[in-house]
């Protein structure tokens, strides 16, 4: 199983690719709603992207209230 650090890095890379950002432009503590300015539909897109990539299911209620990449990675880690 990958470490939390590896998972966090994968989440950051995936988000950068999904939102067409330069590599390294996101960090684990970033508030993705503020940093990316994403709306509810984009949030669901990101959720699908993460689920497809990690081959997991991440119920909405588990990520509701999560706003930084590190906590998001922790939620993913618990499903790997």
């Amino acid at each position: 199983m990958p470490t939390l650090e590896n998972t966090t890095q994968e989440v950051l890379t995936l988000a950068e690719q999904h939102f067409r950002l330069a590599p390294g432009s996101l960090s684990p503590s970033d508030d993705f709603f503020k940093k990316l300015g994403i709306d509810s539909l984009q949030t669901l897109e990101l959720l699908s992207r993460l689920e497809n990539h990690f081959n997991i299911e991440l119920p909405d209620y588990e990520v509701q209230g999560v706003s930084d990449f590190k906590t998001l990675a922790e939620r993913i880690q618990s499903r790997l």
């Binding site: 669901l44 959720l47 699908s48 689920e51 299911e57 119920p59 909405d60 209620y61």
Partner: peptide, 10 residues
């Protein structure tokens, strides 16, 4: 009952 959304694979 959960109201959760599921992806296409599921």
């Amino acid at each position: 009952l959960s109201g959760r959304s599921v992806n296409a694979a599921r």
